[in-house]
């Protein structure tokens, strides 16, 4: 098990290197720092001095991969690649355009993101599974058909609609909760209620329908017939036996996204004004802050890989037959 984990972690390194090289190519090779400077400073009437100053402020005035002017090991380290890309492996992301440390910003913004994302995830999962099990319980009846129709309808609605519509009805018409904003501590409940609710509703369609398919596949198995023959009630069969066995395919999709919860949701956070990583990313994209976008790409893929490893581990937890080697 331990050996397996070590191998998986070692396998993650080449992938992270790949991601790193890809972002490096995207941000520095396809477009040179000169181009970025020109776009940010305005295309017309920009002096070469201004471009040089922009590059110097950000440390982009060095050679890309290999510094011929430096001596010794500085030949490799005094370059954009080493200082901007390779340093990400130790989670040193440098500074954003407004001069703040990106790493510290990420650390402070993780909590608000998690405060929204975690309840959405946990409550949502519980709701979707229950809804899917109920559809399975009533399979073949009009209730099942109505449930599936509802799912297809819900998944055809844009997520923007859920947010805009939800804000309008709950906050503007009914005045139940503030439209947007965030506060720490116990006061935050008022602010997170609506984003969490909307997050759950937006996911009902696709998730419940997917889980229903899994459950329906499981219901046809022999052990289900045995359980029924024993005289167990259908409810008990579904919520105990079927649910346990269907956990394996459900976990594949679910555990992988847990680490990504830290990243928050772009749309929800920007609409509700939550100072999390999602809104940080959106602001950076809109302000064309390349450093922050680069950092978020790297962080996202690192978390994704953590998710893959967690998925493997969770298999052994729910299915004792699986042995990792």
């Amino acid at each position: 098990m331990i050996a397996y984990l070590i191998r998986r972690i070692l396998y993650a390194i080449p992938i992270l290197i790949g991601v790193n090289l890809l972002t490096f190519a995207l941000f520095f090779v396809i477009n040179t720092p000169d181009d970025m400077a020109r776009v940010q400073l305005g295309m017309k009437r920009v002096t070469p001095e201004a471009i040089e100053k922009w590059k110097e402020q950000r440390g982009y005035d060095k050679p890309l991969m290999f510094n011929t002017q430096a001596a010794g090991s500085d030949k490799l380290t005094d370059t954009i690649f080493f200082q901007k890309s390779a340093s990400m492996f130790v989670f040193d992301f440098g500074y954003s355009d407004d001069g703040r440390s990106i790493s510290r910003e990420i650390l402070t913004r993780m909590l608000p993101s998690l405060v929204i994302a975690l309840p959405t995830f946990v409550l949502g999962l519980m709701f979707y599974v229950t809804f899917a099990l109920l559809m399975t319980l009533f399979r073949g009846t009009a209730l099942d058909v109505a449930g599936v129709t509802l799912c297809v309808l819900l998944m055809s609605i844009s997520s923007l609609f859920y947010i805009i519509g939800g804000q309008f009805v709950v906050s503007k018409l009914w005045h139940w909760v503030p439209i947007s904003g965030y506060a720490g501590g116990a006061d935050s409940l008022r602010f997170i209620l609506l984003p969490v609710l909307i997050g759950i509703v937006a996911g009902i369609g696709s998730s419940s329908r997917w889980y229903r398919t899994i459950f329906l596949e499981e219901v046809g198995r022999d052990y289900v017939r045995t359980a029924r023959a024993k005289g167990l009630s259908e409810l008990r069969v579904l919520f105990k036996h079927v649910l346990k066995n269907a956990m394996i395919p459900i976990l594949t999709g679910v555990v992988a996204v847990i680490p990504l919860l830290f990243m928050g949701s772009l749309l929800t956070e920007s609409f509700f004004g939550i100072p999390g990583l999602g809104s940080y990313t959106i602001d950076a994209i809109q302000a064309q802050d390349f450093g922050v976008v680069r950092a978020m790409v790297f962080l996202g893929s690192a978390l994704y890989i953590v998710g893959l490893i967690l998925t493997d581990i969770s298999y052994t937890v729910v299915d004792p037959r699986v042995r990792l080697q």
């Binding site: 992938i15 477009n31 181009d35 970025m36 990313t281 978020m296």
Partner: peptide, 26 residues
């Protein structure tokens, strides 16, 4: 494909589109 799928798609799209904007303006 593991490398490509490990980057959250919105971010990869955002990074690529930002770079494309620079190229188009140039």
């Amino acid at each position: 494909y593991t490398v490509l799928s490990s980057i959250p798609s919105v971010l990869l799209i955002a990074a690529a589109v930002l770079m494309m904007q620079v190229t188009i303006e140039k």
